[in-house]
Write a protein that binds this DNA or RNA. Sequence first.
DNA 1: GTAAGCAGTGTAATCGATTACAGTCTATCG
DNA 2: CGATAGACTGTAATCGATTACACTGCTTAC
Lengths: 342, 342
Amino acid sequence: MTNIKKVSELAGVSTATVSRTLKMPDVVTEQTREKVMKAVKAAGYRPNWMATSVKTGKSNSLVVLVPNLVNPFFMRIIEGIEQAAQEHGYSVLLGDTQGKASRENDYAGMVLSNRADGLIQLDHSFPFSEQDAELAESVPMVSVCERIEGNRKFPYVELDNYAAGRALAHHLVSYGHTKFGVIAGQRTSQIHRDRLAGINGVLSEEGIPLLEQNIVGQSYAIETGIEGVRELLSNETKPTAIFCLNDDIAIGAMHELKRQGFSIPDDISVTGFDNVKVSGYLDPPLTTVDQPAYEMGRRAVEILIKKIRQEPLRRSREIMPFQLLERQSSGPARNSADESDI
Amino acid sequence: MTNIKKVSELAGVSTATVSRTLKMPDVVTEQTREKVMKAVKAAGYRPNWMATSVKTGKSNSLVVLVPNLVNPFFMRIIEGIEQAAQEHGYSVLLGDTQGKASRENDYAGMVLSNRADGLIQLDHSFPFSEQDAELAESVPMVSVCERIEGNRKFPYVELDNYAAGRALAHHLVSYGHTKFGVIAGQRTSQIHRDRLAGINGVLSEEGIPLLEQNIVGQSYAIETGIEGVRELLSNETKPTAIFCLNDDIAIGAMHELKRQGFSIPDDISVTGFDNVKVSGYLDPPLTTVDQPAYEMGRRAVEILIKKIRQEPLRRSREIMPFQLLERQSSGPARNSADESDI
DNA sequence: GTAAGCAGTGTAATCGATTACAGTCTATCG
DNA sequence: CGATAGACTGTAATCGATTACACTGCTTAC
């Protein structure tokens, strides 16, 4: 292994000078700088990252906790995180938690053992274990999309999910829909509550009931959409419009509806959430809410780095703008009241 | 910061004993073990990861170089990588290269500076810069899906892309197709060459020509599929079947074909490659080749760790099995020879 | 001509661990 | 009873850097 000592011997200077040449080139003479640089090249020397980290106490790494890697929406966020981190000289440790607490504990522990300087949580849970909870209070941590549960004071970057829920609801109500179904994801998350509250807000203002039995599903997967549709259609009052709480669910829902011979949106309208790449290329293209996922990832990193550097935050909540994308999976409600069978 | 010294004072033992209690619990007395563990708990102590790494010379991290995070196929691979790494006590540093050499250099450099112990490359390029090339010879590196270019001797895990190309071609030829189009991704990659060679192999055996002008596209994106279809349909002889060299391209191609009023597969058959999650839920579901992406990621890690530990490899090429999924986007070729307009 | 100041470099302490080596204590054996 | 082995524990060197402090030599000011 080529270390700083070897280089210093090669260059005929002290290790201190080598270190200075590399970190603060302007404090050494041009002569020595040249000597040192030549030795560095000759030896193929790279400072040992770990050693530098021990000394400086900074790892220049961030951990990102993701419940599920395959969701393209998360990946957009992570892309933003990765870019911004890179630009600030940080690197990203990937923590696929699969939503399991033990995994979260493990990855979150990285910050406590100086393996990472900060933590970005994409899920809604507090990722530390009970016994680490106290230590964790001072850990730089930010959540994106979700809000960390409990009355913790961690900053977060999220969408105005309530308003987005309202926007979608208004959109469908204005098309004359009165019978709704909802296929939900993780029920325990704040996202779920906010989106549903937004939808419910509009519906109750309009005097439209949303029965508990018409809210089905509990995971953000394509299969949930399929099962959700089956469940909704087995109820006595069939919906003419289905809110899917993310695009994957909507993909499954649309697939199953078409398989059963329903036409979208003529028989039933479907909406999603997130605007993943494919949703614009489905048949029909999916009406959904666009989230600036990439930008949200970037913002999370900027906030986190401020936290790490102990710079003051202007605000601890960052609400990003959404955009309702009215595409062709939603349309006017059927006129007649009886489409009990096709 | 709570360090080992503080704990040792708290427990009334030496730092050596603390270290031993944590790493080799069986060499200390039960008494001291208890004392130490109590102090560890009381102080909320976690060994400093960086310090351990400096001493042991191992970072227990792997870098993964990905050209594009949003491709769900890559994410499946990374999921496998992440899982396997975790199980072996390694963590994953994510390197989104965007296909740029400078980025690759940066991330690959992590191994040279002891920030990571090994490297997994998902792209086909040799990720080190010219001046690092020599040092890089001894770096533990594995490529997945792709093969690192140049006559380097790095192990890789891949599909039999040639055979998979042949399988798809056989499938379409057996349906009576004779006029083909290909929408390709990255032309420089080995994958591209192998898949195309497989297709070409079958076609030439069958005496079916594949003109250069019917091979279009050069990136693995949905938009490539759209543009590719436009380009193919503007040629004088229109294809009755289109090979898309990945599923994203196929998604775009199907979308554009349907937009132009073509029926799939009645007018034109479409095939993909990779079997990403959504491809089974498209309308019609996409005929494609399934790659065991998750498993490939796992295998890559296993091989890499063997390399890191300098254990001998049984073989340096790992060819994974594929599976042709015949779904509904492909079917019999139209009988008539003239479907010049619809 | 001497003191002060400054630029450039070296010496050695330090970061937080691990671990070779040495030392202490107890148990066992002849 | 003394020697010896074995079980624990402590001391201090070490990993590969960074950096406070000290030192040297030169310039400038009085």
